[in-house]
């Protein structure tokens, strides 16, 4: 399974990436799995780790960690929004 992952705002700056395309191991089934998978890269990627205030969207809709990730999904991670 392959997904496109986008990063925004302070998270994009911390990670040094705005987007990447990832081939996921079979063990990654949900958004939460994907987040832990990325956090395991260590270093700056730990900012995606458990307890960090990170929001996420799948195909441009904000969803929770229990939602399944599917092939070719567009996944985004970002800090809580501050518009308006």
């Amino acid at each position: 399974m392959s997904v496109k992952v986008l990063y925004f705002a302070s998270l994009r700056e911390t990670l040094g990436y705005s987007h990447e395309t990832l081939t996921l191991p079979a063990a990654v089934a949900t958004l939460g799995d994907l987040r832990s998978h990325l956090a395991k890269r260590g270093g700056v990627w730990e900012s995606l780790g458990e307890g960090r205030n990170v929001r996420a969207a799948i195909n441009q809709e904000m969803v929770g960690p229990e939602v399944a990730v599917a092939d070719r999904d567009e996944v985004a991670f970002f800090p809580p929004v501050t518009g308006g």
Binding site: F8, M62, P79, P80, V81
Partner: peptide, 14 residues
């Protein structure tokens, strides 16, 4: 609309 926009629309201020 404003209250929801503040927490749901993906904007970030720097």
């Amino acid at each position: 609309v404003m209250d929801y926009l503040k927490t749901r629309a993906p904007f970030w201020k720097k």
